[in-house]
Design a protein around this nucleic acid. Structure first.
Length: 588
RNA sequence: GGGGUCGUAGUUCAGUUGGUUAGAACGCUGCCCUGUCACGGCAGAGGCCGCGGGUUCGAGUCCCGUCGACCCCGCCA
């Protein structure tokens, strides 16, 4: 049934033809998107990734007969003459809508089963169905647009880093397991039974070694693998724009990364404001309850603990007495909220981990607080201290300072979303700086790196390393866009002594450190330049630029939240023979 | 590991208090149609109501379990 392509050569893509082409002979190769059969005149919409062109079949009985046999998604070659459409038949919705192709031959290159969903249609299809038939989903305009945007962003970044003197260098995919951080994906070695490679969580040590090797500026669009739970913004494998710079200061890293993001934003025609705003980690946590604050809206968290030191309201008074505090934020215009809306807000707070939430507002009769014990004068004092007007609602929660803020930070996001406080088209980029170097791991009774063990402490905090590790700030920084962490990095430790001190604080004996990172520690001793860098999440950047809320929309073949590829059905069992060769036995 | 939302025709969905033969739209098939582009008209096919159990005279609907998709917490140096 299907015919050969033969010598049929494409002259134009399906998005190319314009009035200037009228009179030209053309060959279009593509998919049948739509057939409008009017009897003795048939219109075909032919699609490729460049666009859609209308083909008209008329007069020729044999050709009409052939066209009638076509169905959606058949692959065809159309030969014909470009004609101008009469004014009343122009289709303003198509870039090619001023012209049409009068077919002189229709070649059926391949048939297609009826697809499970329509390609040219914007109708919603469940993600499950889309992922199973990803090759069809990828034909749809939205994903084609996203794939093309990703290409443009990638190319722009490669050009940018080349201009900035970076070398694009590949690092191994089969590498050494370093059990800190995320769970590794392991690859068994046939040659060394019982031993395993790990897939890189990031090329961290290799890029630092490239600095030791004198490469000066390194960049790689690197696939990274982490065997952790999946989310809208997290996949098992994802792509980082990984970079490292010798003789780097944070300022230099900021400048280079801001330039890179500007180049990426140019691809959607947006000029971003530079330099980016900066915010210390401590402020981000206390005021926004998050280390990746969304600055597109207010609802800033304020501390009013001092107003409750002697409050008759026991919960707040006790919190303050025991080193905690009372924090909250103002929801503008929410004073008129119904009982049901108020209950919803309290429920959202509980979902965020709050044990309770107090709200207060001004009323026609005076003021009202959901905790009557607080009393009218104190309620007025809080409303005034927080700058709440007559139309506003105040919500309050108590707890340890950071914990209260983190709960309120989640509530802040939920409230903003629910009440439509997030403006469209806003791009709020910032650097979050001065992260703590360590966080206390209560389960293991030791310090953990907040970033990673190769992060340099701030020089003025070096003296505190031994006595008070929790107060040591890192030379680490994250770049945040609209509440998404786009990337993070640090100035690295470049001397063996500091590195050894940090390992000890992390509870790694010299022996363990040598076993895991021996090659790296040895390399450090051969003239390591001061260096630092950062990694940007390419999937997140492209998703943001594309206006998508999940990175699955910018990854051609993503996995489900249960880590399954619905198209290929990976992961799967393997032959017993394969396992034998690897000397592996499974329990399941 | 925990919490939540959702599984009904190829697709997206509706389905009342548990009650006759489970509907709509789009898609699909056939016929008609010379300017359509969300073509139009006529006719038609299409269902293990995710799966398994239970309650009941009777279950798409109620209960238990299970599988899957998505969102969130934990986790993600």
């Amino acid at each position: 049934m299907a015919e050969q392509l033969g010598s049929l050569a494409r002259t134009h893509t399906c998005g190319a033809l314009r009035v200037a082409d009228v009179g030209a002979r053309t060959v279009l190769l593509g998919w049948v998107q739509k057939i409008r059969d009017l009897g003795s005149i048939i219109f075909l919409d032919i699609r490729d990734r460049h666009g859609v062109t209308q083909v008209i079949v008329q007069d020729d009985a044999d050709l009409l007969e052939r066209a009638k046999r076509l169905r959606s998604e058949f692959v065809v070659g159309i030969e014909g003459l470009v004609e101008r459409r009469s004014p009343e038949t122009v289709n303003a919705k198509l870039p090619t809508g001023d012209v049409e192709v009068r077919a002189s031959s229709v070649r059926l290159l391949n048939e297609a089963k009826t697809p499970p969903f329509m390609i040219g249609d914007e109708q919603n299809v469940s993600e499950e169905t889309r992922l199973k038939y990803r090759y069809l989903d990828l034909r749809r305009p939205q994903l084609q647009k996203n794939v093309m945007l990703r290409h443009k962003v990638t190319m722009a970044l490669r050009r940018y880093f080349d201009d900035q003197g970076f070398l694009d260098i590949e690092t191994p995919i089969l590498t050494k397991s370093t059990p800190e951080g995320a769970r590794d994906f392991l690859v068994p070695s046939r040659v060394h039974p019982g031993e395993f490679y790990a897939l890189p969580q990031s090329p961290q040590l290799f890029k630092q070694i490239l600095m030791i090797a004198g490469m000066d500026r390194y960049v790689q669009i690197a696939r990274c693998f982490r065997d952790e739970a999946l989310r809208a913004d997290r996949q098992l494998e994802f792509t980082q724009i990984d970079l490292e710079i010798s003789f780097a200061t944070p300022e230099l890293v900021y400048e280079i990364v801001e330039g890179a993001l500007a180049a990426a934003f140019e691809q959607i025609g947006v000029t971003i404001a530079r330099p980016f705003r900066r915010m210390q980690y401590a402020e981000a946590i206390s005021v926004y309850g998050s280390d990746k604050p969304d600055l597109r809206f207010g609802l800033k968290i304020q501390d009013v603990g001092h107003l409750f030191a002697e409050s008759p309201f026991g919960i707040f008074r006790e919190a303050v007495a025991h080193g905690g505090t009372v924090r909250g934020f103002v929801i503008p215009g929410a004073a008129a909220a119904s009982r049901r809306e108020l209950d919803e807000i309290v429920e959202m707070a509980k979902q965020a981990g709050a044990s309770g939430l107090i709200y207060m507002r001004r009323t026609a009769e005076g003021v009202q607080s959901s905790a009557k014990a607080i009393g009218e004068p104190a309620t007025i004092a809080v409303l005034e201290a927080m700058g709440a007007g007559a139309a506003d609602l105040v919500v309050l929660a108590s707890g340890a300072p950071d914990a209260a803020s983190k709960v309120l930070g989640q509530l802040r996001l939920a409230v903003a979303k629910k009440r439509g406080l997030i403006p469209d088209g806003a791009w709020e980029l910032l650097w979050v700086t001065d992260f703590p170097l360590f966080e206390w791991n209560a389960d293991e009774q030791r310090w953990d790196s907040l970033h990673h063990p190769f992060t340099s402490p701030r020089e003025e905090d070096l003296a505190k390393l031994a006595a008070d590790p929790g107060s040591v700030r890192a030379r680490a920084y994250d770049v945040v866009l609209n509440g998404w962490e786009l990337g993070g990095g640090s100035i690295r430790i470049h001397d063996r002594e500091t590195q050894a001190t940090v390992f000890r604080l992390l509870g790694l004996s010299d022996e363990q450190a040598k076993l895991r990172f021996g090659f790296f520690l040895e390399a450090l001793e051969y003239g390591t330049p001061p260096h630092g860098g950062l990694a940007l999440g390419l999937d997140r950047i492209v998703a943001m630029l594309a206006g998508e809320s999940s990175i699955r929309e910018v990854i051609p073949f993503p996995k489900t939240t249960q880590a399954v590829d619905l198209m290929s059905d990976a992961p799967s069992t393997v032959d017993a023979a394969q396992l034998r060769e690897l000397r592996l036995r499974t329990e399941a």
